[in-house]
C-alpha cells in the first residue's frame, strides 16, 4: 500500500477516533463532576426495562417510567414492549408479590337475571352501575342485586366479564383476580373466591325471605336447608343470607337440588 492510501484510511480513523476520545473524556469528566445523586433503584429498574423509550406507558421514556415505579409506586404492568417477562423481573426487584398462594377468581354473588329478578322502573341514563344506583336506588327490585350496566366488564383488563340478561358473569378461565371489578361495583357483590371451590351461594340479599321473594325468584330466602343438607359447617348463615365457608371441603353436592330458590350453583 502506498502512503496515499494509508493516509486516506488513517486520517478518518484518526479524526473520528480523536473526536470520540475528546467527547468521551469530556463526558466522563462531566459525569464525574456534575453528578447528581438519585435513588440507585431508578437506574436499576431502568436497566430492567427494554429501553425502547417508546413512551407507550404514558411516561416520557423508560427512565421516567422507572422513576415513576420507584418513587410514585406506578403500576408496573404498563410496559408493552417488555411484556410479561419485564413485569415479572420488576415485580421481583421491587418486591411486589406476583401471585398469591391459592388461585382466586372473582365471582358475582347474584343470579337474579332479567327472568328471575324484576326491575322496578325503566332506567334512562348513562351506562354505568354507580350512576344507575344513584338514581332512585337503582332500577333492580332487589337493592342488593346486580344492576347489569357493565361497569365491571368495562374495567376488566382481560375482558373476563360479560353481561347476560342484565347480569354480570365472570369467565373463570380468563379472570386474573386483579380486583378492579370488586372496587367498581356499587353494590359490592363481586367477591374473590377460591377458583377450586365447587359451589357457591349466588345471592347477596340480606332481606327477609318474604321480601326477597317479592323481587326475585332466585334469591336466598334464608331457609337454612343448605345448613342441614350440606356438609357440616360448609354453609354459614349471616342473618337471612347463607354463604359458603370455603375452608370446609364440599362433598355433598345434593344441596344444589335442595335449595328452594336454586341460588346455590356450580361455578
Amino acid at each position: 500500500m502506498d502512503s496515499e492510501t494509508i493516509k486516506f484510511i488513517l486520517t478518518p480513523f484518526l479524526w473520528v477516533g480523536l473526536t470520540g476520545l475528546v467527547i468521551g473524556v469530556s463526558l466522563a469528566l462531566a459525569a464525574k463532576y456534575m453528578a447528581v445523586r438519585e435513588d440507585p433503584r431508578i437506574a436499576q429498574v431502568t436497566e430492567l426495562l427494554p429501553g425502547a423509550n417508546c413512551g407507550g406507558c404514558g411516561f416520557a421514556g423508560c427512565a421516567e417510567y422507572a422513576k415513576a415505579i420507584v418513587v410514585d409506586n406506578a403500576d408496573i404492568t404498563l410496559c408493552a414492549p417488555g411484556g410479561a417477562a419485564c413485569v415479572d423481573s420488576i415485580a421481583a426487584f421491587m418486591g411486589v408479590s406476583a401471585g398469591s398462594v391459592e388461585k382466586m377468581t372473582a365471582l358475582v354473588m347474584c343470579c337474579g337475571d332479567d327472568e328471575s329478578a324484576e326491575r322496578r322502573f325503566s332506567y334512562n341514563g348513562i351506562n354505568d352501575c354507580a350512576a344507575a344506583d344513584a338514581l332512585a336506588g337503582g332500577d333492580k327490585g332487589c337493592t342488593y342485586g346486580c344492576l347489569g350496566y357493565g361497569s365491571c366488564a368495562r374495567v376488566c383488563p382481560v375482558n373476563a366479564i360479560i353481561i347476560e340478561k342484565g347480569l354480570a358473569r365472570v369467565n373463570k378461565a380468563l379472570c386474573i383476580a386483579c380486583g378492579k371489578c370488586i372496587a367498581v361495583c356499587p353494590r359490592k357483590l363481586i367477591k374473590l373466591v377460591p377458583t377450586a371451590a365447587p359451589i357457591h351461594v349466588l345471592c347477596n340479599s340480606k332481606d327477609k325471605g318474604a321480601d326477597v321473594k317479592k323481587v326475585c325468584s332466585s334469591g336466598c330466602i334464608g331457609c337454612r336447608l343448605c345448613t342441614k343438607f350440606g356438609d357440616e359447617g360448609a354453609f354459614v348463615m349471616d342473618g337471612f343470607l347463607a354463604h359458603v365457608d370455603y375452608s370446609v371441603p364440599i362433598t355433598r353436592e345434593e344441596v344444589i337440588e335442595k335449595c328452594p330458590s336454586k341460588c346455590i350453583r356450580r361455578n
Binding site: 473520528v16 469530556s26 462531566a30 456534575m34 447528581v36
Partner: peptide
C-alpha cells in the same frame, strides 16, 4: 453522518448532565 450522530448524541448527553447540575 457518522460524526454528526456522534456529536449530536454526546452533545445531548453533555447538555443533559450540565443542566441537571446547574
Amino acid at each position: 453522518t457518522l460524526t454528526f450522530i456522534l456529536v449530536i448524541a454526546s452533545l445531548v448527553q453533555l447538555i443533559d448532565i450540565a443542566m441537571k447540575r446547574f
